[in-house]
Design a protein around this nucleic acid. Structure first.
Length: 260
DNA sequence: ATGACTAGCCGAGCTAGA
């Protein structure tokens, strides 16, 4: 089965592009980020008509995540545990039943964290600590688990076109990268890294300054697979072609072929 | 080329993204 993650940068602005991508690539599960919509306003009708069950965790104006699945949801959990005062919609977990057993899939939108002098950076780091704590608990279940989303972390220097240009940025700061590494070291396999570790493979290109045609991108959208899931990884691909469509998101989909 | 975009909220520029 095909499991994808994509920061769509607004469901209202990206609805038609999303529908076209679903028709062309037909993922079994799609993890969306930055839907920028409240749950009640999410335009799900055409998506459901393509055979998807839709679950969202949205908020007004920005953030917001969603799960689209051809499999029925056995369970849905909204919000990253660990801080009851956190009102930002950045996390949704679905539990599915596959031919080979249960599968948990998370769509997450990790905070950007810029500027680093602001409370936004401390919020990012605290959110990563909460994710680490939550993942530690989930790992104890010893189930196939996939954490997919926009991590807003450039893991390695060769995951961006110009490492010097990203020096000091919240996406590339040592604190962000080491927390991402620590998460991986719980036992996750980072899917694209495991399949393709060449430089120049990116998932985001800024709208500005001709970043896309010059391939001045960064790799910040990742799928992390638990030890029970990672042996079922067949391949991992980046759907770069959607960046050339009319009114594209600044991110492109990343997907895995999973032997469920 | 030291080149600056896009979405949402709204009905004008601001916030936010990365």
């Amino acid at each position: 089965m095909k499991i994808a993650t994509w920061n769509i940068n607004g469901i209202k602005a990206r609805h038609d592009v999303l529908i076209e991508w679903l028709k062309q690539t037909s993922p079994d599960i799609a993890c969306l980020q930055e839907i920028k919509s409240v749950d009640e306003a999410f335009p799900g009708a055409e998506i459901e008509a393509l055979g998807y069950n839709v679950q969202t965790h949205g908020q007004k104006g920005f953030n917001g995540v969603a799960l689209l699945s051809k499999l029925p949801f056995e369970e849905v959990n909204r919000g990253l545990p660990g801080d009851d005062s956190d009102e930002q919609a950045r996390f949704i977990e679905g539990l599915f039943s596959t031919p080979s057993g249960p599968l948990r899939v998370v769509s997450l939108y990790l905070p950007n964290g810029n500027p680093v002098e602001s409370e936004k950076f401390s919020y990012k780091l605290a959110w990563m600590d909460r994710l680490h704590a939550w993942a530690t608990e989930r790992m104890a279940l010893e189930e196939p688990l996939i954490l997919a989303g926009d991590y807003n972390v450039i893991p390695q220097p060769h995951d961006c076109y110009d490492p010097k240009a990203w020096e000091g940025d919240a996406l590339f700061r040592a604190e962000s990268r080491s927390k991402f590494d620590a998460l991986c070291h719980l036992g996750f396999v980072e899917a694209l890294r495991a399949c393709e570790d060449a430089p120049g493979v990116y998932t985001f290109w800024d709208y500005q300054a001709g970043a896309w045609p010059k391939n001045h991108g960064i790799r910040i959208d990742h799928l992390l697979m638990s030890p029970e899931a990672s042996p079922k990884l067949r391949s991992c691909e980046v759907d770069k072609f959607v960046r050339d469509w009319e009114k594209p998101s600044d991110h492109v989909p990343v997907w895995i072929d999973y032997a469920a």
